[in-house]
């Protein structure tokens, strides 16, 4: 019996990677999935954080895809290594802070390392020519293959017919004639294929596979870098960018204000690392201070905290301010007027 070849499929959780893996599985190749966790992935967090999302069934789409395909999934934590990709992308950023081309190259390189360690034969991705302006153009496809070092071990089943033959095709591990020729931004061919395979209920993230394609999220990241004058970050930092309303009333401090119970609860877990405020004479959100709150800023921070509390229309609200050592004090303030929250404070 001929040797069964083995491929690792990059699984983001979206439809394209699901289809790409399926096309290769159907050719009798042994496929396992690999999913890289950068810290910015859309999967997970928002569900864990926001109460209002809890009514929707929560699932990790990469796991869901693997289960649909009946393949194993290896999730790899690349949070540390990814920092360099994000901070110093050789090919720059896309529309927001998404370094897609470098990111793809990095992931394929990691997959190459993985296939060598695990004795697999080649790598597949769900890339489609012309799908994304930055990373999925015909001219960028060879860049990813070359810079990752994967070269002709990288097969894109959904658009393979537009690309030079890869080793799995040349060697007859897969049949080129059964690969596809999808291109462009239209999602119709993928949806038709999903239909043909009987996949329903698949995820279709609008912007891409990660938060870095989101304008608001990117603005917060740039603000973090600029105000700290340092692009290094911890996982906790990037997590906090997803939570709450962010206001920067002064250059040296930012306020993270819980928007609902789920966020407040999530932020509770972090409060000991931050100076934090909360109205004590009425209900109100938890507010974390990122940066340095000087003594002369305390009243303003308390007034803003009061503004977001249920006592916003009262003459006086008592706010509890707790420093990082856990010492708390009470400050009675008049809540800031609605128009006192300046537009330029919002990040």
């Amino acid at each position: 019996m001929a040797k069964q070849h083995k491929a690792v499929a990059l699984i983001s959780g979206g439809l394209d990677s699901l289809l790409a893996a399926k096309v290769i599985l159907d050719q009798g190749v042994h496929v396992e999935g690999i999913n890289f966790y950068t810290g910015f992935c859309v999967e997970g967090h928002t569900h864990a954080i926001r109460q209002k999302d809890k009514s929707k069934p929560k699932r990790n789409n990469a796991l869901w895809v693997a289960e649909e395909l009946g393949i194993k999934l290896h999730i790899v934590d690349v949070v540390e290594e990814y920092k360099d990709v994000l901070v110093n992308p050789k090919h720059g950023y896309g529309a927001n802070m998404n370094p897609c081309l470098d990111c793809k190259g990095f992931m394929v390189k990691k997959a190459l390392q993985w296939i060598k360690e695990n004795d697999f034969d080649f790598i597949i991705t769900g890339e489609v020519i012309g799908q994304r302006p930055m990373s999925q153009r015909k001219s960028t496809m060879p860049i990813i293959a070359r810079e990752s070092g994967a070269d002709d071990l990288l097969l894109r089943p959904l658009c393979a017919k537009f690309l030079p033959e890869t080793k799995p095709e040349k060697e007859g591990w897969v049949k080129r004639e059964e690969l596809l020729d999808i291109s462009g931004r239209s999602r119709k061919p993928q949806m038709a294929l999903a239909n043909q395979f009987g996949f329903v209920d698949y995820a279709q993230p609008a912007g891409g596979c990660c938060f870095l394609t989101d304008k608001k999220y990117s603005d917060r990241l740039v603000d973090l870098w600029e105000t700290r004058n340092d692009k290094n970050y911890e996982l906790d930092d990037v997590m906090m960018l997803k939570v709450g309303r962010h206001l920067r009333p002064k250059p040296h401090f930012k306020m993270i204000i819980g928007r609902e119970e789920g966020e407040n609860k999530f932020m509770e877990g972090y409060r000991k690392q931050f100076v934090h405020l909360r109205a004590s004479s009425c209900m109100g959100p938890l507010v974390l201070i990122d940066g340095e709150l000087a003594a002369e800023d305390e009243a303003l921070a308390a007034q803003i905290t009061a503004r977001f509390s249920q006592g916003r229309d009262e003459n006086s609200v008592v706010v509890e301010l707790t420093d990082k050592t856990g010492v708390a004090k009470l400050i009675a303030v008049k809540p800031l007027a609605e128009n006192g929250i300046l537009e330029e404070w919002r990040i």
Binding site: Y37, C41, H45, N60, I75
Partner: peptide, 9 residues
Amino acid sequence: RLLCPMPVI
């Protein structure tokens, strides 16, 4: 205190 997928990893 880890958020998914960290506990899975």
